[in-house]
Each structure stands twice: as structure tokens, then as C-alpha cells.
Design a binder for these strands. Structure first.
Lengths: 140, 140
DNA sequence: ACCTTATCTGCATCAATTGCTAATTAGCAA
DNA sequence: TTGCTAATTAGCAATTGATGCAGATAAGGT
């Protein structure tokens, strides 16, 4: 995702308005690698701007996703997560704490069963235990 | 997933009962590669057994999943899909018709960013166009 | 045939997300 | 700076997929 300043220009150029609510969300998302949900973003936003609506958070996330500034990922936690990192990467989800980590995959795997299917995108979700959670289990 | 006959034995052995509803679902799921949702299974079941409850379908699917007889997959269609094929494979989802295809991947990809994470499972979702949908677009 | 216990159904509930609308505001232009 | 107009916001209703709950029912061992 681009910087708040660049997004401001991009939004205006697209005929969209740049409101304080959106500026706040731009800032909260910039360089955010926590893969937040709409709800957790709303919580974070509320501490800075009490009264901001969850609806507005959803709306802005949708706008950003449509502009290709962030990607929404589904990792089986029940709610969508948003990732301002739009480079080609994948995700690892910890079964213990639920945290989502970025994973970079080189060398495309060899496929079978896709003869009559043109792939435009692939996303891998790894499951397992993160370092912190393995340590926790070992302690018990 | 094992055959209806084998499942009957496995259920009894686990202290679960084998009801007509469950037998029907065993049959509907056996060798079913359509990756049905709970709702589509319920529709199919209703034509054979009018009055069968959607709740019962969910319950039986949960039981089967817990026994490892089927896996539930999330492909971004809003609802869970169930796959009686529990061999190691992945999925391709057509953006046109939404159909889910099985994909077999050999040669594990090389990872980066997983140094402190122990992976227990990986699932790849491919997106694109299936043969039928590409043909449709070409015709227009 | 009986008895215990799992199961079924139907309905209420829940969580995540989207639809809707009146009031507000960004941002261009005069 | 002021005004205009379309985009946006907030708040609530509605929707969807899934699960919780309870009384009636039925499986299946004895």
C-alpha cells in the first residue's frame, strides 16, 4: 500500500474524497503487518477518533481493496483480514494465537489436475505453530 | 471418505448412531467431487427425504469432519465447502462459475519467512477460469 | 420388548458483513 | 470566501452462514 500522502492524491484523482476518517485509516494501515480485521482496525481507530463508525471502516477498506492498495485474505478465522502488503506472498496462521505471518515462496510447485484451467492467482495458507506458541506448549 | 458401509461400522464403534438421515448423507457424499456446501447437500437430501433438517446436515458434516472422513475448505465463496477426498491435494476455484476443482501438487515449494514456524498443514487455493468458462467468454 | 442415550427438528441466537438513508462535508468553481 | 453538488458518514436494519438449545423421537445394546 502506498503512503498516506500518495493515497490522498490517488483518492482525489479517482473522484473520491479524503476525509479525516480515511486519513486516519491510511495511517493505521501504512506499514501495518498485523493483518488486522475490520473490527480490530475499528478499535484502533476509535482510540484516536471516538465515534468513527465500523461501517466507515468497512467502506474504506473496500475502496482500498478495489484500488489494489490492499488485499483481503481469508484464513479461516471467521472474519476477513486486510493486508497492505500487496507484493506476491503467502500466509502462515498460528493455530495457537491466530497470528498471521507473511511467507515468501520461490519456485512454483508442479501442478497436476489443472490442464483445463487458466490460473490467474494462487494463495497458500500454512497452518502450524509460531515460535512463541511452541515455546508456550513446551513450558507447560 | 470411506464407503457408507464402512462409515456405518465406524459410527457405531464411536458410540454414534446410524440414522436414515445419516445414511442418506453418507451416500450423497460418497465419491462426490462437487465440493458441496451444507446448503446444497441439504437441497439434494430433501429431494430424497423431504423434511430432513438443515441442522442435521450441519451436525453430520461436523461429525464426519471430526472423524477425519472429510475436510472442510474455505475458498472465499462465503460458505464452507466439504470435500470427502481427504488425500493430500489442493483446489482451484473458477471465478466464472464458482466450481471447485481438485489439484495435485508435487514438489514442495521453497519457503522464506517461516524460520520460526512449524508447519503442520498447507492448503493452496488457485483462482482463474475453468475450461468451460473460458470457452464462454471466447464465444461472446 | 425395554431402556438409555444419541439424534432430530425447529427455532432462537450469533457474528460478520452489507444495504439503506438522512444529515454532513469535501473540494471544485465562481 | 462563498456556494454548490456529489461523495461520505453514522447508525440502524437486514442478510447470510453457522451454531446453541430443548422437547420429542428413535437407535441399538441388553
Amino acid at each position: 500500500m502506498r503512503s498516506p500522502e500518495e493515497l490522498t492524491i490517488a483518492f482525489r484523482r479517482a473522484g473520491l474524497k479524503v476525509t479525516p476518517q480515511r486519513q486516519l485509516l491510511f495511517r493505521l494501515l501504512h506499514d501495518n503487518s498485523s493483518h488486522p480485521t475490520a473490527d480490530s482496525l475499528h478499535s484502533a481507530a476509535t482510540t484516536v477518533m471516538p465515534g468513527i463508525s465500523l461501517r466507515t471502516v468497512y467502506q474504506t477498506l473496500t475502496d482500498l481493496a478495489e484500488m489494489g492498495e490492499l488485499q483481503s485474505i481469508e484464513v479461516g478465522s471467521g472474519s476477513l483480514r486486510f493486508d497492505p502488503n500487496v507484493s506476491d506472498h503467502h500466509h502462515a496462521v498460528c493455530d495457537g494465537c491466530g497470528d498471521v505471518h507473511d511467507v515468501y515462496v520461490s519456485k512454483a510447485p508442479v501442478l497436476r489436475g489443472l490442464d483445463d484451467f487458466s490460473v490467474s492467482d494462487a494463495h497458500i495458507v500454512y497452518r502450524g505453530q509460531c515460535g512463541a506458541c511452541s515455546a508456550l506448549v513446551a513450558t507447560k
